[in-house]
């Protein structure tokens, strides 16, 4: 116990030392936040809730839910996790205010507690022009792939089926990369956009239901920002391709031990203080199958 207290004290003092160094003009190159580029400004924002299946093979499907934001700009739109968006926005404003980088870094670390709840996938539509850019984290790195904006062959079922957030919605269905979707769009919002990669309907898509009930998106809020709301993209990313991305993602989700394949003797210290072979750590532990939205890779 005492040892633990001593160590904590030591770290606190070290942290303070580090802080005081920074004040006197220490390491200016310390990375506070990966660099971002502003590529557009949002003229319309829509919040969505996504229900993503945890284990598609289970008898009773359980879902994790995330609050997402769709920023629609003049040219580009971005669909990402709202918590992540807020975190980035907070860091932006801190950087703009000229706050000490060490403080910004500390704030970022405190906010990082919630980062484990992020839905990391980010979809940029029409960026670059005519293309989609998708960013996602695999283990600790952010990967990016580009693809041509896919053509979604929607079949309009009816023009007045439901009311979502007070908007009369039309209903359409389409098959997209191995899954069947039903979407509800609002003709009164003349924007060809929607959650994730969905687009191509004569109105903003407010709700999408996937037939196998693995995914579900529902718009929960809609507003036109009266402030400057930048649409930014992380630049320090590793480029990959659509197929490679899915393969790597599947590997990371279904067998995290495969990551240690290069070093079979790598050891990890557990919470009990024991050193165990990294490859043994999660052996035998059930991991749900990778259930991507796209099945055509």
């Amino acid at each position: 116990m005492n040892k633990r207290v001593c160590l904590s004290l030591l770290f606190s003092i070290l942290a303070l030392l580090g802080y005081s160094q920074q004040v006197t003009g220490g390491d200016e190159s310390m990375p506070v936040m990966s660099s971002h580029d502003t590529i557009d400004y949002a003229k319309l924002c829509a919040h969505y809730k996504i229900w993503a299946v945890r284990d598609a093979s289970a008898d009773e499907k359980k879902y994790r839910t995330h609050e997402m934001i769709l920023q629609i700009g003049e040219k580009v739109s971005k669909f990402c996790d709202y918590l992540c968006f807020q975190n980035d926005s907070a860091t932006f404003s801190e950087m703009k205010s000229g706050l000490n980088k060490m403080v910004i870094f500390a704030n970022q670390m405190s906010r990082a507690r919630i980062a484990k709840r992020y839905y990391y996938e980010q979809v940029f539509k029409n960026f670059p022009e005519g293309n989609n850019t998708v960013l996602d984290n695999i283990v600790i790195k952010t990967y990016k792939y580009n693809e041509e904006m896919p053509n979604m062959n929607w079949t309009i079922v009816s023009e007045n089926t439901d009311t979502i957030l007070g908007y009369v919605c039309g209903k359409a269905t389409c098959e997209f990369r191995g899954r069947t979707y039903t979407a509800w769009y609002a003709p009164d919002i003349p924007v060809d956009d929607g959650p994730w990669k969905f687009h191509g309907l004569p109105g903003l898509i407010l709700k999408v239901r996937e037939m196998a009930k693995d995914y579900y998106w529902l718009c929960t809020a809609l507003y036109q920002p009266t402030w400057k709301s930048p649409i930014s993209i992380k630049t320090e990313v590793k480029k990959t391709t659509y197929i490679k991305y899915h393969k790597a993602k599947k590997r990371a989700e279904e067998d995290p031990n495969a990551l240690h394949a290069n070093d079979p003797n790598a050891k990890i210290r557990t919470s009990n203080g024991e050193w165990v072979l990294a490859s043994e750590l999660n052996k035998g532990k059930y991991r749900p199958p990778y259930t991507p939205k796209e099945l055509d890779w």
Binding site: L44, Y63, G166, T220, A221, L222, Q224
Partner: peptide, 17 residues
């Protein structure tokens, strides 16, 4: 154009599993 805005308002009942 002033869209009919709907602000972030948690649903009265949320269902998770």
């Amino acid at each position: 154009v002033k869209l009919k805005e709907v602000h972030v308002k948690p649903r009265v009942i949320e269902k998770t599993g």
